[in-house]
């Protein structure tokens, strides 16, 4: 009997080769696929819209409430090695994160470095709202402080030379010649000392190697501030009346 049981499936396999598949109850399958656009020809389900309404109302009320006033357009398109909007973001990190860092460690942030690509939107002239903060920073990036050796800070400067981009900085003054070679870099009026450690604030995204900023990867110490970049921006807008950020001479090229 054992043999027969073994043989029957064998015969069956042979048969299925010349005929068709025997899956328990399905002998033949055809599949057809496509995508259907969800466009203006469809009118939304009123019950679903009604369900969304209170969430939407609360959200819009919060997003569109005026937090501050911006006297002139701030765009990342400004020429040069620093932009008004980049300066604003880096200065916000310094101003909002430093008190937290100081209270936790007793130390102060020496300087801030963000990335040019991380400026996601321009800031229009006029009323500034929470929605603007979301547009500027749509990601959930957190502020972190890295303790970098002087050597790593020199790598950071080399990165800026190679990048030739207006990466936002605060607390550091950098001058480049016309070939993007750094001629001077100073923190608190003192030139960068390769023998000294520095506390550099950035985002967790960049600290983890985003935008190839690998000098952040293995810091002497890493401090979480537990503060989202976007929340720092919102809190700052709440605090001030008028945005004063503009291009300045913190990071310039001949």
């Amino acid at each position: 009997m054992k043999k027969v049981i073994k043989q029957i499936p064998l015969i069956f396999c042979f048969l299925s080769l010349i005929s068709c598949k025997f899956d328990s109850e399905v002998s033949q399958k055809t599949i057809e696929g496509k995508e259907i656009p969800i466009d203006s020809t469809i009118t939304g389900d009123p019950e679903i819209e009604e369900f969304i309404a209170p969430f939407k109302e609360h959200l819009n009320k919060t997003l569109d409430s005026t937090l501050a006033y911006n006297p002139s357009v701030l765009s990342k398109g400004e020429k040069g090695m620093n932009t008004g909007i980049g300066n604003l973001m880096a200065d916000i990190v310094m101003e909002q994160a430093n008190p937290i860092f100081k209270s936790r460690t007793g130390n102060s942030i020496d300087f801030v470095l963000l990335n040019y690509g991380g400026i996601r939107a321009e800031l229009n002239k006029g009323a500034i709202t929470t929605r603007d903060a979301y547009n500027m920073m749509p990601f959930e990036n957190q502020i972190v402080v890295t303790e970098l050796s002087g050597e790593k800070v020199m790598e950071l400067l080399t990165y800026l030379e190679k990048g030739k981009s207006a990466h936002p900085v605060s607390g550091i003054n950098i001058k480049m010649d016309k070939d993007f070679k750094i001629t001077s870099a100073s923190v608190n009026g003192k030139s960068i000392n390769p023998e000294q450690n520095y506390f550099v604030a950035t985002s967790d995204y960049l600290q983890q190697g985003g935008d190839s900023m690998y000098f952040f990867s293995d810091p002497v110490n890493l401090y979480d501030i537990d503060y989202k970049l976007r929340n720092a921006i919102i809190d700052y807008f709440h605090k001030i009346d008028t945005i004063k950020a503009k291009q300045d001479d913190r990071f310039i090229k001949e």
Binding site: V26, I31, E32, G33, P37
Partner: peptide, 24 residues
């Protein structure tokens, strides 16, 4: 968009048309 895939089993005929259709 909404994706739509139709399985026709045991000789059931495709009725929606205009999609990509194969035997599996």
């Amino acid at each position: 968009y909404l994706g739509r895939v139709d399985f026709y089993l045991n000789g059931s005929k495709a009725i929606t048309g205009n999609g990509k259709s194969v035997e599996i």
